[in-house]
Amino acid sequence: MRYWLQRLGAALALLLAVSMLTFGAMNLLGDPLFNILGPAASDTSTEEGRQIIADAKAEYNLDEPLPVRYVKWGSAFVTGDFGVQFSVDGQPPVADLIKERLPRTLMLLIMAQLIAVTLAIPWALWSASRADSVVDKMSTATTFLFIALPNFALAVLIKYVLSIKFEIFPLIFNAADPFWTRVWQMVMPALTLGLPAAAVYQRLLRTDLITTLQEDFILTARAKGVSRRNVLFKHALRPSLFSFITIFGITTGALIGGALVVEQVFIIPGLGSAIVEAILREDFPVVLAIVMLVTAAFVVINVIVDLVYSLIDPRVRAS
């Protein structure tokens, strides 16, 4: 109980720090007024121009000192009011944008992780059961290639092979298409994120499996007459999953970063492209909302990782 309270405290402190950092950086480095009003922001020559500036400042709380603005933004944010987008034409709520964009990015991330995990586990089992053989060494070299290949380069490569050389997957993502069509359209972006993740998982899981396979209880299982296959699946796999689960959480964070680039290459209007556009427009509320969302997701994933840990290991559950 005390442990979870500490975790909660740390998570809140983290969210607070990240929001301050983002808020501060955006306000100190950028000029929001210019983005709301355009060139009119510097037009102080006429009475009318000054009035427009004053109105805009009042509306967006730009007159007040930074800490006050931060508190105002923060207290609205925690009640679920993410504010409105900065734009000259209308003020659509930030929440609308997120509602529209989030499902696509979520779909991308889930598909990427599914690909990564479903590839990595059988691959690692296969490698570990023939550790240090020629095929195992070749597979380890392959993982190295995937890890060293930058995601944008991999994206270009996948696009070239799967869409241009062999016209398997479409190049265009259309949010209006039916679900399964969208899944099909999302395969290439998901592969771009998923293959390097699979390589990372495979390497880790393989090492842990090899360690586990040298444990005495594996010998016990074999001495009971359990088949090779079942020794791997029923006895060796579960005890080897711990660092895999940890890295799964960390990788999810990295994939969110990768999604920025991948959405750009494959032209997917997701959260990644939303934040890039928002930063370029200096649309502060949107940037803040997405950064907070991503950080919160990071925190939640790490909590889930802890929970899964205790699910797998009865020894953790006890303590």
Partner: peptide, 18 residues
């Protein structure tokens, strides 16, 4: 396991902990 079986030195390591 059926006709011949084995007991090992360290009972903590030789039982599957999970």
């Amino acid at each position: 396991g059926a006709e011949m079986s084995m007991v090992f030195q360290n009972p903590l390591n030789s039982l599957n902990p999970l």
